Amino acid sequence: MRTIKTLHRAQSAPIADLTTYRALPTNSVEHLDPFLFLNHHGPQTYPARNRGLPFGPHPHRGFETVTFILEGDILHQDSGGHRSVIGPGGIQWMTAGRGLIHSEISSDEFKQTGGPLEILQLWVNLPARLKMTEPRYTGLQQPEIPAVTLDEGRVTIHAVSGNWAGTAGAVQPLTDMALATVNFRQDGRLQLSIAAGRTIFCYVIRGRLLVNGQEAEARQLVEFNYDGDDFEARALTDDAVLLLGHAVPFNEPIVAAGPFVMNSEAEIRQAYQDYQAGRFGTWTE
Rank of each mutant, 00 (worst) to 15 (best):
P88F: 13
M1I: 10
W123V: 08
V222I: 11
T3V: 02
S161W: 09
I86W: 00
E285H: 06
T19Q: 13
L130G: 02
E118Q: 14
A216L: 02
E104F: 10
T199K: 12
V261Q: 05
R206V: 00
L7W: 13
R136C: 07
F68T: 04
G114E: 09
Q142N: 14
L122I: 11
H102C: 13
D187M: 10
Q276L: 04
N212W: 04
F231H: 02
Q142F: 13
I119G: 03
R269C: 12
I105G: 03
G228M: 05
P143R: 14
D187W: 07
G89F: 08
G80F: 00
A178I: 04
I91S: 06
Y203D: 14
P59F: 11
Q112H: 07
R185P: 00
P146F: 11
W283L: 11
D78M: 04
F35M: 15
S103N: 08
S12C: 13
Y137H: 05
T65G: 03
V171K: 02
Y46T: 03
F184V: 02
D17Q: 15
F37D: 11
I194W: 02
P43L: 12
P259I: 12
D78S: 09
P253R: 09
T181R: 15
A159D: 01
L140S: 03
Y226W: 07
A165E: 08
Q273R: 14
G87D: 07
T199L: 11
K131C: 08
Y275R: 01
K131T: 02
T65C: 12
G56L: 05
R49P: 00
R2A: 01
D176I: 01
L179Q: 13
E109T: 14
I119Q: 06
T67H: 11
L242G: 11
P47G: 03
P249S: 07
R51P: 00
E217Y: 12
R185S: 13
E152I: 00
L210K: 12
P127N: 12
G281S: 13
N212F: 06
D229R: 07
M177K: 07
G139I: 05
T167H: 05
I105S: 04
R51D: 09
D73P: 00
L130V: 01
L126A: 03
E285I: 14
V222Q: 08
G258I: 14
T6K: 15
N251Y: 12
E285A: 09
A256F: 01
V248N: 09
F184C: 05
A13V: 07
T167G: 01
D33Y: 03
N39L: 13
Q186A: 03
A235N: 08
G56H: 10
R136H: 10
H40A: 12
L32N: 04
D230F: 14
L53A: 12
T237L: 12
R136S: 09
I4N: 03
G80H: 00
L140C: 08
H82F: 04
L32R: 01
A271Q: 10
D78N: 07
T138L: 10
F63Y: 15
D78G: 06
E267Q: 11
H41Q: 10
